[in-house]
C-alpha cells in the first residue's frame, strides 16, 4: 500500500517541479546570466563576462529613470491607498447583496483590455476632451487644461489601473476581521477614531501592506501607461527595459535592469513578511 501511494505523490509533484523549472526558474536564471554578458556589435550577445551592465545603471541618465519610477510608484501607491482603503473598508461593511454588486463593479474593468481602457483616458484627458468640456462648461476653468501627455495623466492612469488590487487587498482583510474587537475597544472606552487607530488599522495592516506590494511592484514595470498617457515624455524603468530590449537591442543591459528591479521587489516582499509574519499576500485568491 505504502510504496504505491508514494509513487502517486511523485506523479503529482514532478509536473509541478517541471513547470516551475521551465517557466519560472529557467527564465530567471537566463536573465541573470544574460545580465553579465556583453552585447554584440549589431545583434545578440557575446559570451564575455562583464559587470559593465550594472555599472551602466549607475549612470545619471539611467539612475534618474530609476528614481523617477520610484517616485511615481510611491505616489501611485499612496494615492491608491488613500482611495482604496476607505473603499475596501466600507465595501466590507456592506450587506452581502451589496458586497457582491460592488465586487462585480471593481472587477468589471478587467474584462476589457487594459490598453483599451487607457485609450479611454485619452478621450477624457485630451484638449477639449470630456474633462475639459465638463470643467469649462461648469465655468471652473477657462482654457483647456492640456492634461494629456503630462505627469498627472500618467499618475491618474496608474492609480486607475492598480486601484482594484488595493481595494481587494484591504477588503479581504477588513472582511476577515472579527468585529467584536472593535466592540471591545469601544466598550473599554475608545471613541470611534481611537478604536480605528488602535485596533482596526493594526488588524488590517496585512491587507494594507499586501495592497502596497500589489500596487508598488507593477507600477515600477507598467510601461504602456507612461507611453499612452505620457506621450513618451515620461520614461520609467519599464519603458527603459522595453526600449533596451526592443529598440536598442542591448539585451544584457535590459537583463541587468530587470535583475535590479526583481531584487528590489523581492526585498519589498521580504519586508512584508517580516512585518506581518505571513507568507501569503492578502487579496489574491
Amino acid at each position: 500500500m505504502k510504496p504505491r501511494r508514494q509513487n502517486r505523490i511523485w506523479l503529482t509533484i514532478v509536473p509541478l517541479y517541471l513547470f516551475t523549472i521551465i517557466f519560472v526558474a529557467g527564465p530567471l536564471i537566463y536573465m541573470f546570466v544574460l545580465s553579465f554578458l556583453t552585447r554584440d556589435e549589431v545583434w545578440g550577445v557575446v559570451n564575455t563576462f562583464t559587470l559593465d551592465n550594472y555599472a551602466k545603471i549607475l549612470k545619471p541618465v539611467y539612475a534618474q529613470t530609476f528614481l523617477e519610477s520610484l517616485k511615481l510608484a510611491f505616489a501611485t501607491t499612496l494615492l491608491t491607498l488613500a482611495v482604496g482603503y476607505p473603499f475596501g473598508y466600507f465595501m466590507a461593511r456592506l450587506s452581502a447583496k451589496w458586497k457582491k454588486l460592488m465586487m462585480l463593479l471593481v472587477v468589471v474593468p478587467f474584462w476589457t483590455s487594459a490598453l483599451m481602457r487607457m485609450y479611454g483616458w485619452i478621450i477624457i484627458f485630451q484638449s477639449n476632451g470630456l474633462l475639459d468640456k465638463l470643467l469649462m462648461g461648469l465655468g471652473i476653468t477657462e482654457d483647456p487644461l492640456k492634461l494629456l501627455y503630462s505627469y498627472p495623466a500618467v499618475l491618474v492612469g496608474m492609480v486607475y489601473s492598480l486601484l482594484p488590487f488595493m481595494i481587494l487587498a484591504v477588503y479581504s482583510s477588513v472582511e476577515k476581521m472579527d468585529w467584536s474587537y472593535i466592540e471591545a475597544a469601544r466598550d473599554l472606552g475608545a471613541s470611534r477614531v481611537q478604536a480605528f487607530l488602535t485596533v482596526t488599522l493594526k488588524l488590517t495592516l496585512p491587507g494594507i501592506l499586501s495592497g502596497v506590494i500589489l500596487v508598488f511592484i507593477p507600477s515600477m514595470g507598467l510601461f504602456f501607461i507612461a507611453d499612452i498617457l505620457g506621450g513618451g515624455k515620461i520614461m520609467l524603468v519599464g519603458n527603459l527595459i522595453r526600449d533596451q530590449l526592443m529598440t536598442t537591442r542591448d539585451w544584457p543591459f535590459a537583463a541587468a535592469l530587470s535583475v535590479v528591479l526583481t531584487v528590489l521587489t523581492s526585498l519589498l516582499i521580504r519586508l512584508y513578511r517580516k512585518i506581518t509574519h505571513t507568507t501569503e499576500l492578502e487579496g489574491i485568491l
Partner: peptide, 29 residues
C-alpha cells in the same frame, strides 16, 4: 456611546486584541 458609559463587557469569544500582549490588553482602557 459605549465609551461614555462606565460599563464593561466580558465578551463570549473574549475579544482579546490579538496584536497586543496581555499587559497591553488589560491596560488598554
Amino acid at each position: 456611546e459605549p465609551n461614555k458609559r462606565n460599563v464593561n463587557t466580558v465578551f463570549q469569544n473574549y475579544a482579546l486584541f490579538p496584536h497586543m500582549n496581555v499587559a497591553d490588553n488589560i491596560g488598554y482602557s
